[in-house]
C-alpha cells in the first residue's frame, strides 16, 4: 500500500494526511480577507456543500519549534468551546502534500500547510464601532458579554478583546468572539505573561506589570469597546504604555492602596507618578448618554480588577433589562 519506502528519518509524505481526512482541495478560494500573525485568511467555498468558510492558513516553516505551540493551544481551546457567540472551528484541513519528498519547485500552491476552517462571518466590529445605533450597541454588547461569560465559566481568558477580533454576520444580528490566538486556560494561582491585549484596550493591572490576573482583564477591554461605541472614538488611544496609563488615570483617577489594595506592590507602580492628584471623572465625559449604559461602563472600568464587574453580573445589569 505504501508505494515507495521512506528511508529512516524522512517520513513518507504520502502519509501526510490520514486516509479519509479532508484536504484543502475540498475548498475553492474566493478572496484573501486578511493577514494574521500566523498567516493569511481566505474566504473560500466548500466545493461539496457550497458553504462559505474562512480559511486561516498556518505557516509551517520547518523551524525548530515544530508545530507552533500557540496554534496548538488555540485549536485545543476552540475545540472545547461551543457557544453561539464564539466563532466555530469547523475543521482543520491539511494540504495534500506531494509524494515526491521535500524540496523541488513544484507549483503546488498549498504544499505543507495547515488550514483552520472557520465559519464565515461578514465583517468585524471595527467597521461598525463608530456608527451604530443605541439599540444595535445593546445587542452587540449583550452577545459579546454572553460569549465572554461562556469563556470565563470554562476557565478561558480571551486576552485580546478588540474590534478586529469580534466578528459580525447575519446583517449585523450576530456577534462572535474570534481569534483565540492569545487566549489561554487559567487557574486561580496561575501567572502569565503580561504582554497581551492591544494597547488601547489593555487594563491597568497589565500595564503595571501584573502577571497574576484573571477574567477582569477581558472586562476592561469590553468596557473600552462599550465606551467607544458611545463616544464614536477610542476611549484611551495611547501610543506608548506610559501614555496609556496616564490617559486611564486622567479619567479613572490615580490608583492607591485605598482604592486598590495591593497596587503598590505591582512591578511598575513605582515608575508612575501622579501629575496632579486626579479624581475619577469618567462619568463626566458621558453626560448625554443613557444613564444605565454609563453605569455599566463605570463598573467595567474600575481600576481595581477585583472590584470590576463580572460578565455574568454585567448581563444582569439594568442596561440589559430596560428597553431603549
Amino acid at each position: 500500500m505504501d508505494g515507495e519506502e521512506a528511508p529512516p528519518g524522512a517520513l513518507n509524505l504520502a502519509d501526510y494526511a490520514p486516509a479519509g481526512a479532508r484536504t484543502v482541495d475540498c475548498f475553492r478560494r474566493i478572496r484573501k480577507i486578511g493577514e494574521g500573525t500566523y498567516g493569511e485568511v481566505f474566504e473560500a467555498m466548500d466545493i461539496i456543500t457550497g458553504e462559505r468558510a474562512a480559511l486561516k492558513k498556518i505557516k509551517l516553516d520547518d523551524g525548530k519549534e515544530g508545530f507552533p505551540r500557540q496554534i496548538l493551544r488555540e485549536i485545543k481551546l476552540l475545540k472545547k468551546l461551543d457557544h453561539e457567540n464564539i466563532i466555530r472551528l469547523k475543521e482543520i484541513v491539511v494540504s495534500p502534500g506531494t509524494a515526491h519528498g521535500a524540496g523541488g519547485s513544484d507549483d503546488y500552491m498549498y504544499r505543507g500547510d495547515i488550514y483552520m476552517v472557520f465559519e464565515y462571518m461578514d465583517h468585524d466590529l471595527k467597521k461598525v464601532l463608530h456608527h451604530s445605533t443605541p439599540s444595535q450597541v445593546k445587542y452587540y454588547m449583550e452577545q459579546l458579554l454572553k460569549g465572554l461569560h461562556y469563556c470565563h465559566v470554562n476557565n478561558v481568558l480571551h486576552r485580546d478583546i478588540k474590534g478586529a477580533n469580534l466578528l459580525i454576520s447575519g446583517g449585523g444580528k450576530l456577534l462572535k468572539l474570534a481569534d483565540f490566538g492569545l487566549a489561554r486556560p487559567f487557574t486561580r494561582d496561575g501567572s502569565f505573561t503580561n504582554h497581551v491585549i492591544t494597547l488601547w484596550y489593555r487594563p491597568p493591572e497589565l500595564l503595571l506589570g501584573a502577571t497574576n490576573y484573571a477574567e477582569a482583564v477581558d472586562i476592561w477591554s469590553v468596557g473600552c469597546i462599550f465606551a467607544e461605541f458611545l463616544l464614536r472614538k477610542p476611549l484611551f488611544p495611547g501610543r506608548t504604555e506610559q501614555e496609556q496609563l496616564s490617559k486611564i488615570f486622567e479619567l479613572c483617577g490615580f490608583p492607591n492602596e485605598e482604592n486598590w489594595p495591593g497596587v503598590s506592590k505591582l512591578p511598575l507602580y513605582k515608575t508612575i507618578r501622579p501629575t496632579t492628584p486626579t479624581k475619577r471623572r469618567l462619568r463626566d465625559i458621558f453626560h448625554n448618554f443613557d444613564s444605565h449604559a454609563v453605569d455599566l461602563i463605570d463598573r467595567m472600568l474600575i481600576l481595581n480588577p477585583t472590584e470590576r464587574i463580572s460578565a455574568h453580573d454585567a448581563l444582569c445589569a439594568a442596561y440589559f433589562i430596560t428597553k431603549m
Binding site: 501526510y16 494526511a17 508545530f67 495547515i114
Partner: peptide, 9 residues
C-alpha cells in the same frame, strides 16, 4: 514536525 502533524491528524 511531520510526525507531530501525523499524530495531530
Amino acid at each position: 514536525m511531520r510526525m507531530e502533524l501525523l499524530v495531530l491528524t
